[in-house]
Design a protein around this nucleic acid. Structure first.
Length: 251
DNA sequence: ATGCCTTATTTCATAAGA
């Protein structure tokens, strides 16, 4: 979102147009009290938000039920206190997680160690949830990891940079090993990207990354009918720097 | 045209994003 409040005009246009049953958003930059619950409920969605204020913030919108909301997860690391980076709810028979993985900044930064610790703790929390889970899991959000070199516009520029290091990719791999599929959306204009920096005309040059992922429990993957990146949402007036990933499941 | 950073805040400068 890069601020839900700043993005509301786009959200109010996009939601009725695409009409997802469930929407997971990240970087809302808004507290739960200030979250625009009523406006979104007016479009037919239940809302669950987790936010502490100016930074981070995650939420789930659903029109197919929103039950057993959990904010954060077991043993979630902080910097130093836990931030608002994870929320989960059961929607239409799927246990949905909306997550915002710490950025990491640079591999020599304490924020990078925090990122790896957070990912390891998320993996453990998901493993715990899988034992005796009543509903299949889906983990969606801004992972701040490009899974492969194909997921960045110029891998040579990213050597030794955050988002592509083996440690980050391994952390994602350990999550996937629990039984998840990294959904590969349809390619639009030859790009698999979900994020383009605002600066230097990167969007128009095709300088992007695929860092917003949808991880489906392997049992859900065969039920997927379509997946695409809504690249058009990155265009126009006051867009986010990320584009939505849309996944269609036949449940 | 898709159009060359944006947002929030301890606000007119800085931190953060990735």
């Amino acid at each position: 979102m890069n601020s839900l409040l700043a993005r509301m005009p786009r959200v109010l246009e996009w939601l009725p147009q695409v009409q997802p049953d469930v929407l997971c958003i990240q970087e809302t930059k808004v507290s739960e009290e200030t979250f625009p619950h009523l406006e979104l409920q007016g479009l037919g969605y239940e809302t669950a938000a987790h936010g502490l204020g100016a930074w981070n913030g995650v939420a789930i919108l659903s029109r197919v039920g929103l039950e057993d909301v959990a904010r954060g997860f077991a043993a979630e690391p902080g910097f130093p206190d836990p931030e608002a980076r994870a929320i989960a709810a059961t929607c239409g028979g799927v246990r949905v997680h909306s997550i915002y993985v710490p950025n990491g900044r640079t591999p020599d930064s304490p924020h990078y160690e925090y990122k790896l610790a957070w990912l390891a703790a998320l993996r453990d929390a998901v493993e715990g949830e899988l034992s005796g889970a009543a509903a299949p899991l889906a983990i969606l959000g801004d992972f701040n990891i490009a899974p492969t070199d194909k997921d960045v516009w110029d891998p040579a520029l990213f050597v030794d940079s955050t988002h592509v290091t083996p440690a980050e990719r391994d952390a994602l791999g350990r999550l996937l090993e629990l039984g998840f599929t990294d959904v590969q959306p349809r390619i639009v204009k030859g790009e698999p990207f979900t994020y383009w920096d605002y600066r230097a005309g990167n969007f128009h040059k095709g300088f992007g990354m695929r860092i917003d992922l949808v991880l489906l429990a392997n049992e859900l993957a065969p039920k997927m009918k379509d997946a695409y990146i809504d690249r058009d949402a990155r265009k126009g007036k006051k867009p986010s720097d990320h584009a939505p990933v849309v996944v269609d499941l036949d449940l």
